[in-house]
């Protein structure tokens, strides 16, 4: 069993099910990427894993523990961190306060973690006393990821971290994500830029209409002619 195993997930927001028997897994120190066309249920699957959606079937386990019915806020202390796609920083708080709030549940000294985040994103250290709302899109994403890292998570979940940022910023962000994975954190992310994301992914999950269509290593998916034709534009 992998570190995170979400098996056979089925559910939706009250009405019709959006995801059907969906499996998503990730191991420590690995990057797993969920890709697929718009409306495939990628973000919904992420929310289901974080408990923001009621599952009618399936189980989610973290480190062997069943967390299927745990409330989202209770998942933070056990090592899960989530970076939503939108509104993912506290705009009226300074960068440093954003990071502090990320570490809200921690009782120990957080200065070391904060230094690590600043090492990862040197730009944030420069702008530590500026309100996050005044930063550029790419910098905001850095704050958002940094905030999530402050809990010292074992699993970091990113919902389209590169949405709306320039290609250069995107490359930089992917580099940072690789760096984070090397520290032994499991990373699960949903991405629009499928080709780029699969290049850095250890595992890829291609979702279509709420179901798994292809599951393989990132390299294998990139090499798969069918996947290339249907989802990567040839």
């Amino acid at each position: 069993m992998k570190f995170l195993s979400a098996i056979n997930m089925t559910g939706g927001y009250g009405g019709a099910d959006i995801i059907h028997s969906c499996d998503i897994t990730v191991e420590k120190g690995e990057i797993a990427v969920v890709v697929g066309p718009n409306g495939a249920g990628k973000s919904t699957a992420m929310k289901a894993i974080f408990g923001m959606l009621d599952l009618s079937e399936g189980t989610v386990t973290l480190d062997g523990k069943d967390i299927t019915h745990m409330a989202p806020q209770d998942r933070v202390p056990i090592g899960m961190a989530f970076v939503p796609q939108n509104r993912n920083v506290f705009v009226s708080l300074t960068v440093e306060e954003n990071l502090e709030m990320g570490a809200f549940i921690r009782e120990d000294d957080i200065s070391e973690t904060m230094e690590q985040v600043y090492e990862l994103f040197p730009m944030l250290k420069e702008k530590r006393n500026q309100p996050a709302g005044e930063l550029s899109g790419g910098q905001r994403q850095q704050v958002a990821v940094g905030r999530a890292l402050m809990t010292k998570p074992k699993l970091l979940m990113l919902d389209e971290p590169t949405a709306g940022v320039s290609p250069i910023v995107m490359d930089d962000l992917f580099d940072r994500i690789l760096e984070i994975a090397r520290t032994g954190i499991a990373i699960l992310m949903v991405e629009q830029n499928a080709r780029h994301a699969l290049e850095i992914a250890d595992h890829g999950f291609v979702m279509v209409q709420g179901e798994n269509r292809y599951t393989d290593t990132g390299k294998a998916l990139l090499a798969n002619p069918e996947v290339r034709r249907s989802f990567l534009g040839g």
Binding site: F82, F90, M101
Partner: peptide, 23 residues
Amino acid sequence: TRSGKAMRAYSDNEDLALLSGID
């Protein structure tokens, strides 16, 4: 204070405050 900042954070973005473990 930490509680004060948590209040500002909650007022700013309720959902993100929940994700940060703010009660």
